[in-house]
Design a protein around this nucleic acid. Structure first.
Lengths: 185, 185
DNA sequence: CGCTAAATAGACCGACTTGTCTATCCGGTG
DNA sequence: CACCGGATAGACAAGTCGGTCTATTTAGCG
């Protein structure tokens, strides 16, 4: 037996929301792609926003796991930070890449559903927290500021990579991160 | 006599689109706020996207003028670059701030209308071009890379400032720009 | 087999969207 | 005053959206 309707719905919604954003994907398309009846969606989720909450949570968890794996595979905090930027290149190299899904989510969900905005905030805070921890392990005196700088480089370079259709902004951001790491050690 | 319908429509659309984004503002709201009849909109613009094109073009021009004014008022290219980041603080301090309007535009218009995506691309390229010129004036050997780094810091910090609801990311980005300027002079 | 409970397809609803059409009104000009 | 072109309000069309409901089929199980 194949995976449950809930799993198929969550996975399909996660994929479509990443590819085109929350508001540009309707439930008709989701249930068609997930091969699930309309009522099966509403039997498993109270609303589209509840489904979105589950889908984006799964995406967030996957991203954080990938970041943690990259950190674990790296030799020291500085290398780990650069390895995280290498992940961004992977993300942006996918054909369907359209910028960070959580930026789009925050821009879109802000006014309607506080839960979705909180999820986007939490995702960014989680990444920033990892940067901060690594900066602290690298012996930085002000790890929070460095973490904010690295997060801005991450978010901005992913955004610019989408707008330009090229990964050059991410490479540049990675080298900026190297400079910042060398600066105040 | 007050300003023309075209001017009122463009100004109103520019304001609303900045506040809430292209797709979250309908023409009904625009014509109501602009105090213009429905048909007056369609007599002056072929479609909502044509109005959006005019509105976002005006916003882009205003932003570029503000950047140029900040550059002109600065003492040297390094100071000019930092002055541009001070502009970001002003932008993000407005109560209605919801991140860079052109990032939202690019994310949203990408699939529907190539003209709007090109406008967003052009806006980012214009800012990047100014960073590049300043970097060159500062005697940098690789002004393009520095320009990309500064643009990523700009876009990322504006985005993070919106998501966090605080201007701290911009201050951090500004100090990162200072570091980058000191680094490879 | 027969029963039950769940999953299904699809009609349907109300709200909302952009865009068109029509009928009216207002202001400037001869 | 009479006229006329442009602006007006608002009905309307055609489509999409999220969500509900019903009638039917399917699947599990004693």
């Amino acid at each position: 037996m194949r995976e449950s309707a809930t799993e198929r719905l969550t996975a399909t919604a996660a994929r479509l929301f990443q590819e085109r954003g929350l508001t540009r994907v309707g439930i008709n398309e989701i249930i068609r792609e997930a091969d699930v009846a309309r009522m099966s969606l509403y039997n498993n989720f109270k609303s589209k926003e509840d489904l979105a909450l589950a889908a984006y949570s799964a995406v967030s968890k996957n991203r954080q796991d990938a970041v943690d794996a990259a950190i674990a595979a790296s030799d020291g905090p500085e290398a780990a930070i650069l390895a995280i930027f290498d992940l961004a290149v992977d993300l942006a190299s996918r054909a369907s890449f359209r910028g960070c899904a959580f930026i789009d989510l925050a821009a879109h969900a802000g006014l309607n559903d506080a839960r979705l905005l909180d999820l986007a905030r939490g995702h960014k805070a989680a990444l920033r927290g990892r940067f901060s921890r690594l900066a602290q392990q690298a012996g930085r005196s002000d790890p929070e500021t460095l973490a904010r700088q690295l997060l801005a480089l991450w978010d901005g370079s992913l955004t610019d990579a989408f707008i330009e259709g090229d990964t050059a902004p991410i490479s540049a951001a990675r080298s900026a991160a190297e400079h910042l790491l060398r600066q105040g050690e």
